[in-house]
């Protein structure tokens, strides 16, 4: 297992992933979100196609209410994950308005509320 983690700032994400992502070589796996110490950590995970267990993870830290860039135009699948993170963590992505999973009258952002 070879995982390379790269810290990027919110402004650089777009450029970094645009320059890096080639769908023929890297498979876009997931956008992953964590909420720790009042800080959002968003991870963009990629895995190399045809190579055993090689991972590339871009991660960025942001305050909970920051506006996060949407990458849906580069990777159409990203829209799904952005919508999901919006529901689970209340992460504020560009252009993702609709709550996909949790009804508005339900508990908001269940993974963010400390229990």
């Amino acid at each position: 297992m070879k995982t390379t983690k790269e810290l990027v700032t919110l402004h650089e994400i777009r450029g970094a992933i645009e320059g890096f992502y080639d769908p023929q070589i890297w498979h876009f796996v997931c956008i992953n979100g964590l909420f720790e110490n009042d800080e959002l950590e968003i991870q963009w995970c990629f895995a190399k196609i045809g190579v055993k267990d090689e991972w590339k993870v871009f991660y960025a830290k942001a305050p909970g209410d920051a506006l996060l860039p949407s990458l849906a135009d580069i990777m159409p699948t990203a829209r799904m994950y952005e919508g999901e993170l919006r529901d689970l963590l209340d992460a504020n992505f560009e252009n993702s308005v609709k709550g996909m999973f949790i009804e508005l009258d339900g508990l908001e952002a269940p993974l963010r509320i400390k229990r």
Binding site: P23, H27, F28, K48, G50, P76
Partner: peptide, 22 residues
């Protein structure tokens, strides 16, 4: 490739992507 498909659907479109290989 563009919508990073996976599994049998991707393989039916000619993308040789299988986690059992990778």
């Amino acid at each position: 490739y563009r919508s990073s498909l996976l599994g049998p659907i991707a393989r039916a479109s000619g993308v040789n992507f299988d986690v059992r290989n990778d």
